[in-house]
Design a protein around this nucleic acid. Structure first.
Lengths: 142, 142
DNA sequence: CTGGATATTTCACGTTGTCAAGCAAATGGG
DNA sequence: CCCATTTGCTTGACAACGTGAAATATCCAG
């Protein structure tokens, strides 16, 4: 009953698996250069865009809020993030990247070699095609 | 001095990040259905192909051998993996998937919905194009 | 045979993740 | 207005994963 997956799809899934593995390696290595773990880097990336309640961070990371408490704790100790009260709701704590946090994240981001090494092998046309296909895969049609 | 990354490349990197996140979610969910963690599933996948010394598992996972000890311990307790002596070198322990382990991994693999849901949105031509681009990205030219 | 390298394990430790319990603050129905 | 419920966050206990250092057993070269 399980629909036999055709060989093409299977190969694509494997290739995506390789890309995922490769991406992680490089992401963690880049984070490590700045003494950050992967999770810390991801949170810092979120907060570089805008301050956010703990709750929403947990939703983005798809984990429990209690987990976020610890991650923010460790970032806060290092002065990369701060907790601010929310003007409208005193239950809420807004986590916000400090100037140092934003700067760290920007440096991390531009040291993400993944942007250069494997993608450099592709022509502009290929990159465009890849972008369009990935958009469709992720359901980001315009 | 840092080469400004062009917008197209930046978007592709972001899209790949989304795919990576998505892939992980689904992979962990599929593993969870079989009471496995992501790391356990990955090891079981390796050992489904062939038995392997602890050392080599660590290399494949890019982690320390001491970490592998624990992962194999937990799989062994559940009868999915066993440690065998190596005929030629008594220092080596070959980790091998048991019949139950192989079966579990095959079930896990076919429940990997990532193969269906997002890729189903693509035509065969798009999938072929994606395969070719990913191959080039990963340096798997023929 | 001896000394050095290799394979694995053990231990201590830190981070990430879960779940349950608890506290503070908001909210809605009577 | 008031109480019950819900919501947001933290705490504590626990497990998996990951590192690094030290211990043990085995191999191998000289």
């Amino acid at each position: 009953m399980t629909p036999r997956i055709d060989p093409l799809t299977r190969e694509v899934v494997d290739l995506i698996g390789s890309v995922v593995f490769r991406y992680h390696e490089e992401y963690d290595a880049a984070a490590g250069k700045h003494q950050l773990t992967g999770a810390q880097a991801r949170v810092l990336g979120l907060l570089s865009l805008e301050p956010m309640p703990m709750r929403r961070i947990a939703e983005q990371l798809k984990c429990e809020p209690s987990n976020v408490t610890g991650i923010i704790d460790r970032l806060e100790i290092r002065g990369l993030v701060e907790r601010r009260p929310d003007a409208a709701d005193r239950r809420i704590k807004l986590a916000a990247a400090t100037a140092a946090g934003k700067e760290t994240y920007e440096r991390l981001r531009s040291s993400l070699d993944f942007a250069r090494e494997p993608l450099a092998r592709l022509s502009t046309d290929e990159r465009t095609a890849l972008r369009d296909i990935l958009r469709r895969m992720l359901g980001l049609e315009t």
